[in-house]
């Protein structure tokens, strides 16, 4: 298939991929270059470039599933808020997700909850990164 060919070509042309030290790095670099729903190889295995939250949204679009993912997203956002690194739009996305549940649009709710949960997770990462690296931009 066309898709497979392009992946093969990309792998052949990008020696940097082979040197990617960790799965996380390989994942991120592939997501960055190719977006979601892309398949890449890493140490002999095949992996996709979807965020864990995007996979969590690929369940049957039911009220229970949507409510479940929304609850997880809220918990994650509470975690990042505690660290003082909550993002501005996340609260609104969570509200929109709830609204979608109330209106019976469970797939929309799942997608929004996934995005909010992702934002919270990356905010937590950002906090930990900042603790280690904030000094890098201080003039000496």
């Amino acid at each position: 298939m066309k898709k497979g060919l392009i992946i093969a070509a990309a792998l052949a042309m990008a020696p940097t991929l082979a040197t990617a030290a960790s799965f996380q790095e390989a994942f991120e670099s592939n997501r960055a270059m190719h977006g979601n729903d892309h398949v890449f190889e890493w140490k002999g295995g095949k992996y996709h470039t979807n965020h864990e939250e995007e996979m969590e949204a690929r369940v049957k679009a039911t009220k229970a599933n949507a409510a479940d993912l929304l609850a997880k997203a809220k918990a994650k956002n509470a975690e990042v808020a505690k660290l003082g690194f909550e993002w501005k739009l996340t609260g609104g996305i969570l509200k929109d997700a709830q609204k979608a549940i109330d209106e019976g649009d469970y797939q929309k709710a799942l997608n929004l909850a996934a995005q909010a949960k992702y934002h919270a997770r990356i905010g937590i990462q950002q906090y930990h990164y900042a603790q280690k690296n904030w000094h890098l931009s201080v003039p000496e």
Partner: peptide
């Protein structure tokens, strides 16, 4: 306070210093 000023934060990943120093 110093740390707050220089740490990147928010969805746009900006520190105060990003705009007001560099």
């Amino acid at each position: 306070g110093k740390k707050f000023f220089y740490a990147k934060r928010g969805q746009l990943n900006l520190s105060c210093a990003n705009c007001h120093v560099q």
